[in-house]
């Protein structure tokens, strides 16, 4: 060891004085994953890096949607045939009229409610089971040996390909559709949770154990909260895949639901209603994904701003 390593100031050799209050000495080091140079005080939060206020960003978002709608209107009103045949698709005013008609009927809301119930049931079950399975296979070698081959073998099968099995397996179509939705969300949630748990620094676990924590304390105080950012990544993907699969399953075997109604509209050549169904699906998917993102951001407030899950 060189003399240079002996770094205490003379001041430090004074006899045990009272502790001085903490200096607002600010951040010096960047070794901590949760202490970037800028993150010492909430008051030091940085403005959005890419310029523009909140209002301007919302204006850009709205303009993006309006531009897409305007393009649709131009292509359909002019009956454009540019290899793609827009002349067979309804114009915005036809769609708006059909939407207005549907919004006044009870069946529209029953379909909407039915799809939402299926999503909430399937996705809710998948969230619980996926997080539990992800933690289990990441934390237990034996559980990993038992379940990982099964998970990896079933994971590549698209959930929608399980429709025949679901029809055979479950007494009612309703249960089959929830099952398909569950399977769709289960795998992304499990895989994300598994990765998030494996990526946790062992230091946090060591700290809890040396404070007297048992295995259950490590799970409760370290693994679950520490994995939340990754878990919410999986929940977000899972919600998107759930919608794809619930709509597809409804189109194949449903009796109600937005997917069923959209397909029925196609078979009776009611194209404006098909588009109304599509827009409804888009809005429902957007709303539910936004809800997941919102909850995710709430429970991961501790992350430095740039790393938070969600936009």
């Amino acid at each position: 060891m060189s003399g240079a390593e002996a770094q205490i100031t003379d001041q430090a050799r004074q006899p045990d004085p009272l502790p001085s209050p903490p200096r607002s000495d600010g951040p010096r080091r960047t070794a901590s994953p949760y202490a970037p140079e800028r993150g010492v005080s909430p008051a030091s939060a940085q403005p959005a890096p890419n310029g523009g206020g909140r209002g301007r960003r919302w204006a850009v978002r709205a303009a993006s949607l309006l531009a897409a709608a305007a393009l649709w209107q131009v292509l359909t009103v002019t009956d454009a045939r540019l290899w793609l045949r827009f002349d067979r698709l309804p114009t915005l005013d036809q769609i708006a009229a059909r939407a207005a008609g549907q919004l006044g009927t009870q069946i529209y809301y029953l379909d909407l409610l039915q799809s939402l119930i299926r999503i909430l049931a399937g996705f809710g079950l998948a969230a619980v089971a996926g997080v539990a399975m992800g933690v289990l296979v990441a934390r237990s070698t034996r559980a990993g040996d038992v379940f990982t081959p099964l998970l990896e073998a079933v994971r590549p099968i698209p959930a929608i390909a399980l429709v025949p099995v679901a029809i055979l397996l479950f007494p009612t179509d309703e249960q089959g559709i929830v099952f398909i939705t569950f399977v769709a969300a289960f795998f992304p949630i499990t895989v994300s949770t598994r990765h998030a748990v494996r990526a946790l620094p062992t230091l946090w676990e060591d700290a809890v154990r040396t404070l007297g924590g048992a295995r259950r304390h490590v799970h409760w105080y370290v693994v679950l909260p520490g994995a939340l950012p990754g878990v919410f990544g999986g929940l977000s993907v899972g919600m998107g895949v759930s919608w794809i699969c619930v709509i597809s399953a409804e189109m194949i075997s449903g009796e109600f639901g937005v997917g069923y109604r959209t397909w029925m509209s196609y078979t009776i050549v009611d194209y404006p209603a098909v588009i109304v169904g599509m827009i409804t699906i888009g809005l429902l998917g957007w709303l539910t994904s936004a809800a997941v993102e919102l909850v995710g951001r709430r429970v991961t407030r501790w992350l430095p701003r740039a790393e938070r899950s969600g936009p």
């Binding site: 903490p22 080091r29 901590s32 949760y34 202490a35 993150g39 010492v40 005080s41 501790w302």
Partner: peptide
């Protein structure tokens, strides 16, 4: 939160 503190704190 810890990220709002300096290393010494």
């Amino acid at each position: 939160l810890p990220r709002e503190l300096s290393g010494g704190m």
